[in-house]
Design a protein around this nucleic acid. Sequence first.
DNA 1: AAACAAGTCAACCGCCTGTAG
DNA 2: ACTACAGGCGGTTGACTTGTT
Length: 263
Amino acid sequence: MGRSPCCEKAHTNKGAWTKEEDERLITYIRAHGEGCWRSLPKAAGLLRCGKSCRLRWINYLRPDLKRGNFTEEEDELIIKLHSLLGNKWSLIAGRLPGRTDNEIKNYWNTHIRRKLLSRGIDPTKHRSINEPTSTQKVTTISFAGDSKDDYQDQKINIKVESVEMNKEDNEIQEKCLPDLNLELRISPPHHQQNQQMDHHHQRSNSVCFTCSLGIQNSKDCSCSKTNGNGCSNNIVGMNIIAGYDFLGLKTNGLLDYRTLETK
DNA sequence: AAACAAGTCAACCGCCTGTAG
DNA sequence: ACTACAGGCGGTTGACTTGTT
């Protein structure tokens, strides 16, 4: 006995979407907005599974999709993000406006994997294929907290352990990844923090932790607690080494985390 | 021109997570 | 605390296209 199907499969279409189906979906979402995917097909007059509608909209019909070939900059960004996040396609997609997780996943599997292999780089480990295992770099990021709701005592330890690497990788490490050994504590903003937040829009080198993770306007967002607006591209509470964001990605000074939303 | 292989990508599947009741 | 459900995600499939023989 498996899980019950998400919808009545006997009366749903499968396979490629027709133009008419696309138009029905677009028209419905324009009129009623996204959400409630399960009931959407019936309401929109579509013989499709709700999941199928969601996928079609997100991956193909959404008006903000970029489409077209990936640029060299996008390629490099995907590689860098993949080295940090692994197969977290939705997170990677969040950093690439107009790109979908499915698109990036496909692009990775068809183009970038081969590109890295041709460079002699293992696409999974992001290390030279010929590199001896003794020089493996181990990076551990651990989050430890006792309580989800207790601001006073919630402690988040981020520990990055680096084991010796070869010289080339060390150079990359120095350029891209600032050494991290942070012990962060989420707590209500005190006076000094408030002052910092007052300059929120002028100062762009620190971010409240929840916003840095892309969870804006959440209950944990200290920014929204103080100015009522939450972080959009504002940065408070966690210092970032100038020129790099919390993923260690080089920035041009102004960071924009709006694209790192958890969908 | 036909047959086959390789590449591409939209779509599906099933599992996981968050949340409401 | 438990259950059911909806939404989200990553892995995989398969139809279609392009390249090669």
